[in-house]
Structure formats: C-alpha cells, structure tokens
Amino acid sequence: MKKILLWILAFILTGTLLLTCVCLVGRQVIAPGLQEDGAQVSDAVIREEKELARQRITELADLYGFTAEPVIEFVNEETLRDLHQEASRWYSRILTDGKSGEDVVWNPEGLEAVFAKDPALAELSRDEAESMILICTDEVRRSMVRMVLPLRQQVIGIGLQMAGKKVDLPNIIEFLVGVPWAALAISALIAGLIALFAGRIRFSLKYIGSALGAAAIVLAATAVLFLSAGIQSMIREASAGLTIQYQDVVSGAVLLTAVMAAVLLAGCAVCLWLGRKSVKTA
C-alpha cells in the first residue's frame, strides 16, 4: 500500500516537473515581448536580416532602376535594430493589452535623400524623378517592415478583437508567466511528501530519481515531436524574414529544453545511484 502511494506521488511529481519545464520554455519565448522598451534582438538575427535586406533591395533596384549600394548601406545594423524595437513594441501591445494597436510604420530620416542623390534617378525629368523617389522610398520601407514584421497586422488585429471577446489574453499571459515557479514549489512539496512517506530520505531517492528521469524522457520526446512536426518548413515557404526569427526563438527554446533535460537526467542518475546504495545496505 505504501509503495503504491509512493509511486502515485512519483507520477504526480513527474507531471509537475514537466509542467515546470514546459512553462519555463513558454516563458522564455514570450518574456522578450513583455518588455515595454522592446526586446533585444540577437546579432545573428541582425546579420541574417542584413543579408536578406541586401537581396531584397537588389531585387527592387533591378525592378525600379535605382542604384542598390547606397540604399544597402543606409539599411545598416542600427536601422534594423530600430525597426525591431518598433516590431517588439507591437508584439508587446498584443501581450500586455490584448490589442495590436496601430500598425508598425518605419519612417527613417534620410532615405528619400539617398534616392535624391542617386545618379540613375537624376537622369529622369524632374517630375518623373520626384515620383520615382517617392515610389522607391515607399517600396523599400514596405519591404523592410515586411522582413522584420512579416505579419498581416490588420488580420492579427481583427483576430485579436474576436479572441478578446472570449478570452482575457493579458490575464492568461500573466498567469502563464507565474506558473513555472508555482509548479516548481508544488514539485518540491511532493518530493518532501515522498521523503516523508518513505520514512528515510535514502529510500525515497528511488521514487524521486525515477520521477526526474521520467520527466527528462518525456521532455525530450516532446521536443523531438515538436521539431518533427514540420512547422519550420511551413514558415520557410511562407516568409524568409519570419524563418530567421523563428529559428532564433526555436534554437533558444531547444537549448533551454536540452539543459533542463540534462539537469533532470543528472538528478535522476545521482538519486538512483544513492538509492541503489540504500538497497545494498538494506
């Protein structure tokens, strides 16, 4: 009877440990979006986006006949970081207010001047040149915003309005952010209960170690299942800009999952090894 109770507690401990790990990963994914002043974007993302921006500007230059190099130089790392801050504030409004608010508009000073100095456009008549400067500026702006925030902002806004009538998104987010620590506290409580019911801490190690190992196995299996679902290929087909950001978020989440699984496995090995000693002495 005592053994059955201990195994039930170990089963519950596995569940709470899993909940802690899954919520910690979820928290890591959404936490940057909760910063009011905008999330910090990694250098790797900026580098890849700079390369993508170069490709897009070259395509636009071929289409509209302007010189690509000055525009590519204009869209530097600092400019991309500013644009990311704008996009991050847009995400933040969704997560904290449950509304998308105004669309992200990128209006950098000096882009029109870059086109105005372009010798290829200077060859046109004055009216044509002015018109081309406006068109080219608008196209580059739109292309860069689409690269950094490749979402139909109005569609998201309508979707959020509809969802907001049924669920309170900000409250759910706030609740989710607090769940990992609550689940961790419950896990510690259950581990204590196992030790209490087992009588001696050494005897309880078998159950606690099994729960840690089981949580690591299930966590790894869940990560493998998610990675094999093929979401990345869908995103790659849909947008190159989103693929860069998705890869950055997923690699961070996978790294955290791997670290947590390794910690759980190490805990499992230590507990079971010490537990084996108790079997020997018993």
Binding site: K206, A214, I217, A221, R276
Partner: peptide
C-alpha cells in the same frame, strides 16, 4: 539494483 535504472522509463510510459 539493475532494475532500478528502468524505473524512469516505466514511469514515463503513461505520459
């Protein structure tokens, strides 16, 4: 002592 290493796998099976 040998069986103890399979316990995490057994506990993970329902999940």
């Amino acid at each position: 002592r040998e069986r103890v290493w399979f316990l995490p796998l057994v506990l993970a099976l329902p999940f």
